[in-house]
Design a binder for these strands. Structure first.
Lengths: 146, 146
DNA sequence: CATAAAACCTACAAACTAAATAGGGTAATA
DNA sequence: TATTACCCTATTTAGTTTGTAGGTTTTATG
C-alpha cells in the first residue's frame, strides 16, 4: 500500500500543477487546501525539492513551484522517493537493490524470476504515467499505453 | 515489499511441496531446514491451514502436509493471506476494499484508474503463478504467460 | 536598516505495525 | 497412559510511519 506521505506528495504536486500560473505557492495554502498537516507537508516538499522536482523561494512572497513540466514527472519517481522500492523483493529492485539473505543464487531462483515479472509489469504502468495524467480533468485526455 | 511472514510461508510451502512423499512433516523439521523460528512458523502454518491450503495430523507421527496440488495454489492467494492487499490503494483492492477518505469520487479519480491498472498488471502475474512454479528445478518448466 | 514572512533544518514524540516469544491447552496415537 | 505435537492467547520487542516543536536563514519591503 502507498503510504500517507506518498499520497500527500501526489496531492501537493497536483495542486502545484493546477496552479502553475500562480508562481510560488505557500506550504500553508497547499496544506489547507488538501487537508495535510503543515509541518508534515513541509518535510515532503523539501524532499521533492532535493530530488529536483520542485523549486522554492524563501522570504516574503516565497513558496514552492514545479521546475519540470507535469508530463516529465513520472509516478514511478515520486513513489520511489517517498514510498521506497517498487519491487516486492530487495534482490529485484532496480533502485534499492540488496542481496536476499535467504537466497543462495539469484540466477536460478524461481521466486526471483517471478518477482522480476511483477516489477516489470508494475513499472510498465508507473514509468509511463505522469503528473499530467493525474491532473487531466477528462478521461479522454488520459494516455493509455497498453 | 513482501513481509518476512510471507517469505517464510513461501519457504515452508516449497519445502512441503518438495517433500510430499513424506506425508506429514514436523514444524520443527521445516523450521530447522529453512532457518525460521519454530513458534513464528507455527502461527504461519496455522493460518495456511485455516485458509484450506494445508492439512495437519496431531500426535506422534503428526505434522503438516499440502491438501492441494502445488499447481492449484496461486502466489496471489498466499500473498493476500499473509502480506495483505496486493493493490496500492484500498479503493482499488478486490479483496480488502475500503473507500479512500480523501477521494470524493472513484469514478472520475485519475489516480484510481491508474492504480487499477497497476493492480491488474500485478495480478496478471501472481494469479497465474503457483507453488509449482516456485519448486520447478529448471527454468524450462516455467510457464511463461506473457 | 528594521521587520515580518516564509522556507529550511534538527530533533524528538506518539502511534502503529511487524516480528518474535512465552506458556499453556487440547487432541491424537503408539 | 504417557508422549508427541498441534492449537490458541497474550505479551514483548523492534522498527517504521506519522506528526510535532522550536529555532535558523533568507528575502521582500517600508
Amino acid at each position: 500500500m502507498l503510504s500517507k506521505k506518498t499520497k500527500y506528495a501526489f496531492h501537493a504536486l497536483s495542486y502545484l500543477a493546477e496552479n502553475q500560473e500562480k508562481g510560488a505557492v505557500l506550504i500553508q495554502e497547499i496544506a489547507f487546501s488538501k487537508n495535510i498537516s503543515h509541518k508534515f507537508l513541509e518535510n515532503i516538499l523539501l524532499e521533492l525539492k532535493k530530488a529536483g522536482i520542485l523549486g522554492s523561494k524563501k522570504g516574503k512572497g516565497g513558496g514552492y513551484y514545479l521546475i519540470k513540466k507535469p508530463e516529465e514527472i513520472t509516478l514511478a519517481k515520486i513513489i520511489r522517493l517517498l514510498n521506497g522500492p517498487i519491487a516486492w523483493l530487495p534482490c529485484v529492485s532496480l533502485n534499492y537493490y540488496e542481496k536476499c539473505s535467504d537466497c543462495p543464487d539469484e540466477a536460478t531462483c524461481n521466486m526471483h524470476l517471478i518477482m522480476c515479472q511483477v516489477r516489470d509489469q508494475t513499472l510498465a504502468v508507473v514509468e509511463n504515467k505522469t503528473l499530467a495524467d493525474l491532473t487531466a480533468k477528462n478521461t479522454d485526455k488520459q494516455t493509455f499505453k497498453y
